[in-house]
Structure formats: C-alpha cells, structure tokens
Computed example of a mutant assay.
Amino acid sequence: MRIAVTGAFGFLGSRLTAHLLEQRMLCGAPIEGLVLADRIVPDDAAAVDDPLVTVVQGDLSDRLDDLFADPVDVIFHLAAAVSAECEEDFDLGMHANLDVTRALLDAARGQSAAGGPVPRLVFSSSLAVFGIHPGLPPTSPVDESTLPTPRTSYGTQKLMCEQLIADCTRRGFVDGRVARLMTVAVRPGKPNAAASAFLSAIIRAPLAGLPATCPVDPGLRVALASPQRTVLGLLHLAEVARGTGPGQLSGSAPVNLPALTVSVTDMLATLRQAAGDAVADLVTIAPDPAVEAIVGSWPAAFDNSRAAALGLHPDPDFASILRHHLDDRAGSTRTAHEPPRP
C-alpha cells in the first residue's frame, strides 16, 4: 500500500500523516510508502525522518511525476487555497484549487491507463459549496441532496472539483471519495487566511492570554467539527467499502462530514465557563462585513444521516471540542518541556 498526501504539512495534513505513521496500516494493508507533498516543508517536521516517507516539495502541478514515481494506491488531496485568500486573489484560487486538482486527476488517470492501480482519491471539499442566497428560502437542515449554490470563489472552485472527481469516478479513472469538511475548530498555532479562522482565534488566543476579535454578530450559528473528528472522517472515507449494504459507500455523491451546530455566543459562554471571566473578556466584538458576508453565507444546520450510516458522528457539544483543544495544548506544553531522552 503506497499513499500520497497533498498539503501534508498543513494542520490537517500533519495530523493525518501522524496517524498513518503511527498505525502503519490502511485499508487492512501495511503502508509500504508514504509520499508527503507540500509547497513548504517545516524544518522541524518529524515525519521526514521516518523510513516510510518520501517528501515532494514545491507547486504540486510541477511535481506530479515525483508524486507518481511509483504506483500510488490512495491519495489524500488536502492541498488548497482557502476562502478569504480566494476572494482576494481569484487566479490564486483557480490555480491552487481547480487547476492543481485537474492535473492530479490527469496524472492518476495516466497511472491506471498504463496498467497501474486505479487510485482511491479522498478529496477535502467544504461546506462552502453551499450558500444562502438573498431572496431564496434557505434549506435547513442541509443534506447531500441539497443543491449547492456557493457564494464565494472558494466554494465555487471546490464544487467544480467535486463534479470533476465524480465524473472521473464514473469513468473509472479514480475511485473518488469527496468529504465536505465543516469549519475545523479549534486550530492551534497562527491563524490562516480562511474567513472562518476567527472561530479558532476567539478560543485559542484568550487561553494564551492574548486579545482576540470576533468579526461577526455573536448570534451567528456555525457548523463545526473538531480536528480529531475531521481526520477520522477522512480516514474512514478512505477505508469504507463501496456498495449498497449497511455501512458501505454508494455512488459518487459527496459525504457531508458530521456537523455540530453552535452559535458564537455559545462558544464564548463555554469558554467563560471553562476558563473564567478574565479569559473570556479578552474577546472583543467588532463586526467585519467582509468576513460576515462569507461565513454568514454558509449553512449552519446539517442532516448528518448519511455520515451516521457510515459510522461517523458529530462532536457532542462545544465543551468537548474545547476539552480536546485544552488536552492538545497540555500535551504540547509537556512535550516542549520534557528533557531529551537518552
């Protein structure tokens, strides 16, 4: 089993890679090689030292020959430009999201046409393929039969990729499995360029004693998933059998990964209850119409039935997501202060 991960050194990619290297199995088979592709490889990335790992660095569209130097059985395609940067730079989003995905599909098709395996492609799409349009009644809750009507360039690019992957799957070029990700929170580290980055920042920064700004009306409801549930969802989609029986994946329609619906007010109340007034008071409400227009266009309530039939379930509440984050912070702090082992 040879696996490739694009965007491998990003937040989700690094977590997924760590899981694969820990388990060293996928789909019931041992992992014999793991190709990690990304534009930037951190100097302290521990994964590069593992004997299973081959690193491919640079623009993916220029490095596909290296990615497919040996036959690839499973591809996790996580590399992407995110929401706010796609609104700011249309050409960047089209290249990073659509052009690179098409090039990857062409390379995968070439592998199977040459007699190699038909790769299983797990693609990280987004709830941003849906949009709430003024003058039209919103669909609630959203499920996989809901018509996607994106209102951002990012959502449009993801939807185009979904359709392209579905057609390539229908034609037998790849075995495509599309996971529509909810907003992932709480993300550690520096904020990225996603419009939804504040949903992590209003929790992460105050816990570190730093001020944070909430750029939306606190009454706004959002669809969240913890990093743990998101990574497990991607892995499960890679492993689930195709078919029409219980627990099997039927057709090429995307799977909405399970969502927890919560308001920003509830998120901040949970923070206040867990960490106290002094921490919660570090958050300032300062609406930003540009951010609110993007995040407010995404649906918040999802019907999780299809995900549940596959064995996937949402986080039970925001308190559990916060506990996951606090546990991660505690683990990182312990690791950073542990003396080196002999």
Rank of each mutant, 00 (worst) to 15 (best):
I3R: 03
A4K: 07
A4M: 08
F9D: 01
F11R: 07
G13F: 08
G13S: 08
R15E: 11
L16H: 03
T17P: 10
H19G: 10
E22F: 12
L26S: 11
A29Y: 14
G33C: 05
G33M: 09
V35A: 02
R39F: 12
D43N: 13
A45I: 06
P51L: 06
L52H: 02
D59Q: 12
S61A: 15
D62G: 08
L64I: 04
L64K: 02
F68C: 01
F68N: 00
P71M: 09
V72W: 00
V74H: 13
I75W: 00
I75T: 03
F76P: 00
L78I: 01
A84K: 03
E85R: 13
C86I: 14
D89W: 03
D91E: 15
L92R: 14
L92T: 03
G93C: 07
H95L: 10
A96Q: 11
A96K: 05
N97D: 07
L98K: 06
A103K: 14
A107R: 12
A108Q: 01
Q111F: 05
S112V: 15
A114T: 04
G116A: 03
V118E: 13
P119I: 11
R120N: 06
R120H: 05
S125D: 08
A128E: 10
V129K: 00
P141R: 04
V142R: 06
E144D: 12
T146P: 05
R151D: 11
Y154W: 13
K158H: 03
K158Q: 08
Q163V: 14
I165S: 08
I165N: 04
I165H: 02
A166K: 09
A166S: 13
C168I: 11
G172I: 12
F173Y: 15
A179R: 01
R180Q: 08
M182Y: 03
V184Q: 01
V186W: 07
S196C: 08
S196E: 06
S196Q: 06
A197S: 12
A197P: 02
S200F: 11
L207P: 01
P211E: 09
V216P: 02
D217L: 03
P218K: 04
P218Y: 09
A223Q: 05
S226F: 05
P227F: 03
Q228V: 15
Q228P: 10
R229L: 14
H236I: 11
A238C: 08
R242M: 12
S250D: 15
G251A: 07
S252C: 13
V255I: 14
V255R: 02
A259W: 00
T261R: 15
T261H: 11
V262R: 02
A269E: 13
T270R: 11
T270Y: 01
G276S: 09
G276P: 05
A278C: 08
V279Q: 02
I285S: 06
D288L: 05
V291L: 12
A293N: 09
G296N: 10
G296P: 07
S297K: 10
S297D: 10
W298T: 01
F302D: 01
S305M: 08
R306C: 01
L310I: 13
D315G: 09
A319W: 02
S320G: 13
L322P: 00
R323A: 15
L326F: 03
L326I: 00
G331N: 07
S332L: 15
S332M: 14
E338F: 04
R341Y: 06
R341N: 12
P342K: 12
